Simulated assay, not measured.
Amino acid sequence: MARYMISFDRGAMDHISEAEIPEVGRAAHAVIQEAMDAGVFVFGGGFSYDDGDVQPAVVAVDGMVTDGPYPESKELIGGVTIVDVPTREEALKWAEKVAVACRCAQDVRRFMDDPEM
């Protein structure tokens, strides 16, 4: 099995109206429940950037902290779902389900294998 991160950028769901948000939320929760029932769900969640306590930060090797928001050249992640599946094709199938539910494209990336982790 391999772990994959399925994610979307901040703002990817901005085209969804306030009236549609509850429906999108129900659809997203249904997909996550399906992944849980299938035994492939590892972790998932969205990121909030509306409060000073949750702004992104970069911690350098010398301990210096630089608070966000990042310059325009840096992407901010809006949300992630981590799945543990046997193949890339399976990860892409779950990404498609998330994309349909969230009404936005999803990025799929495989975590490196590390036998010590």
Rank of each mutant, 00 (worst) to 15 (best):
I6Q: 01
M64R: 12
D67Y: 08
V108I: 14
A99V: 01
D53F: 09
G52T: 13
V100A: 00
D67S: 08
V98P: 00
H29G: 01
D37W: 01
V80A: 05
D53L: 08
A38D: 06
F43M: 12
P86D: 15
A105G: 14
G11D: 03
A12M: 11
R10E: 14
A19L: 03
V108P: 11
H15P: 09
E72K: 08
R10T: 08
G39W: 01
D37I: 01
A95R: 02
I82T: 08
M112A: 15
M117L: 11
V85S: 00
C102N: 14
E34N: 02
L76E: 12
Q33L: 06
C102F: 07
E75P: 15
A101C: 02
D114N: 14
E20Y: 02
E116L: 07
M1G: 12
G25S: 07
Y49H: 02
E96S: 14
V42N: 04
A38M: 06
G46E: 11
D50L: 12
F111W: 14
G79L: 06
D113G: 05
H15L: 08
A35W: 01
Q55R: 13
D107R: 14
G52P: 08
A57S: 14
E75C: 07
V98K: 04
K74S: 12
E20I: 00
E75T: 11
V80G: 00
G11H: 11
D37G: 05
I82Y: 09
E72H: 07
E23S: 04
V85P: 08
R110M: 15
M5S: 11
S73M: 07
T66H: 10
P69I: 04
D9V: 06
D114F: 09
E72I: 12
D114S: 09
C104M: 06
G52A: 15
V61S: 13
E89A: 04
G46R: 02
V42Q: 03
A99R: 03
A91I: 00
A60H: 12
A38G: 00
E72Y: 10
P71T: 03
T81W: 10
Q106P: 00
M112Q: 11
A19Y: 00
D51M: 07
F8H: 15
R110N: 11
